[in-house]
Design a protein around this nucleic acid. Structure first.
Lengths: 240, 240
DNA sequence: TAAAAATATTTCGTATACAAAACACATATT
DNA sequence: AATATGTGTTTTGTATACGAAATATTTTTA
């Protein structure tokens, strides 16, 4: 299709009434399956099989996989096909460092430009997230948390930054899939309530400090210590 | 090819000895033509014509154009083909705002991690740029300036940020093509010398201030006032 | 039996064919 | 004359075919 709508380079509200072309629908389905952890890292994504299950030709699938690789969710190895990306420890740390830099440095603009409508939307998202947490629906809570961070930067009215943060947050889902500790430390029981308060008070400095700590908290809930599961340590495994 | 090497998602030195596949070579050629202003914004990029001139099938060209659209250099309109992107005024301002945010906020990491080797490389790049400016080779100076900014962020050792800044700098070239004022204000006669000095002294605060001012300077050398040439004002044009 | 070689099978990379949409131009209509 | 309609051409979207590389399987050999 070669259109760039499937790339979602423009921030838009969840206006699901808009028509999606065939490849955009397929993109969305695979995208969702990956960030929702239904497709685990390293899962092979063979063109033939996908083409068959979506009833399209490989041409379409190849385009979708290429788009997903630009999003960082899929890794394409020449001549050996696409797999769901498995972020390395280094990549995991880099993504959170990038998020800290972007999200903290954008807050002054956000606070300067935010209005009542956005603030209400953010409060709604935060309430939904708190409800999901109370209901133990971790996945929903994580998704809503991501939406909150995105909605926040949307108020900066900078499409380029929005687009970049969207990619970082997508990749964060993958990173949680790989490095999320089993005991689910579940950071931020209070969600983003405190941040909203600070933003309402136009407190740039404290907002930035909160955001920085918040992202460090999330990162701290991950376990970057274990060796990458991609290369199992056979020596240790079979030494007896 | 569906490989992601053509996307250049990993920072690497200008190691031109590495083998490029056919589509990567084509990508590079079109990429260079665009950022060097040999292909002006809005120039149509018909698949057939490109396929013929590169002696490949449209399949390859479509992949290259898709990659370029992810880079932001090409805009793909469904069913009506690809064109060299013409950044709007809003996009132009956004790109420089994003650059300010990224490059200023990354400086603490850069200063923390920089070593003698990178510093020497940066000094070389800066000297080359000054020489190019003295020789009135504006295009070369601009290219070297971009390489300097990229090399700088490379020292932060964050591939994701590097990748994003690379895209922003590519798009900056396009923005200069569209909004660069004819009298070439030529900012930063001293290049990046002062910044290197501040970095050597580990002066985070002053470095950040310098970088912010520097990017504002560059932006100020552009003329965002004129109406977008894409939609010529016919009424004004033919009113006589 | 285990490693190596040969063969078969799968999967990817690319060219090509054809349908459908967009475009350009000529003709008709008011 | 300006807009509208129709027709032919160009260009894009998608499926498919085929060669080539990678993977899996079998056979051979030590």
């Amino acid at each position: 299709m070669s259109n760039d709508t499937s790339v979602k380079s423009t921030p838009k509200k969840a206006d699901n009434t808009e028509k999606l072309t065939k490849d955009e629908k397929i993109y969305q389905q695979i995208y969702t399956a990956i960030v929702d952890h239904q497709l685990a890292p390293d899962t092979k994504l063979p063109e033939d099989a996908l083409a068959e299950s979506f009833n399209v030709s490989r041409t379409i699938i190849r385009k979708v996989l290429l788009d997903l690789s630009h999003e960082g969710l899929v890794t394409n190895a020449p001549k050996r096909g696409a797999r769901v990306s498995r972020p390395s420890i280094k990549e995991g740390k880099e993504v959170f460092e990038a998020r800290r830099i972007i999200e903290v440095a954008t807050l002054p603009v956000v606070i300067h430009k935010i209005n009542e409508v956005s603030l209400k939307l953010l409060k709604d998202l935060n309430n939904q997230q708190l409800a999901a947490q109370k209901a133990q629906d971790i996945k929903k809570a994580i998704r809503l948390s991501g939406e909150f961070h995105l909605e926040l930067i949307l108020t900066s009215e900078n499409d380029s930054l929005y687009d970049y943060l969207r990619k970082l947050i997508s990749r964060s889902s993958l990173i949680v899939a790989v490095f999320g500790s089993t005991q689910q430390h579940l950071p931020s029981c209070q969600g983003h309530s405190k941040l909203l308060e600070l933003i309402s008070q136009n407190d740039v400095e404290q907002s930035q400090k909160w955001m920085n700590d918040h992202l460090i908290d999330i990162e701290a809930s991950l376990d970057f210590s274990e060796p990458n599961k991609t290369n199992p340590d056979f020596k240790k495994l079979f030494s007896d």
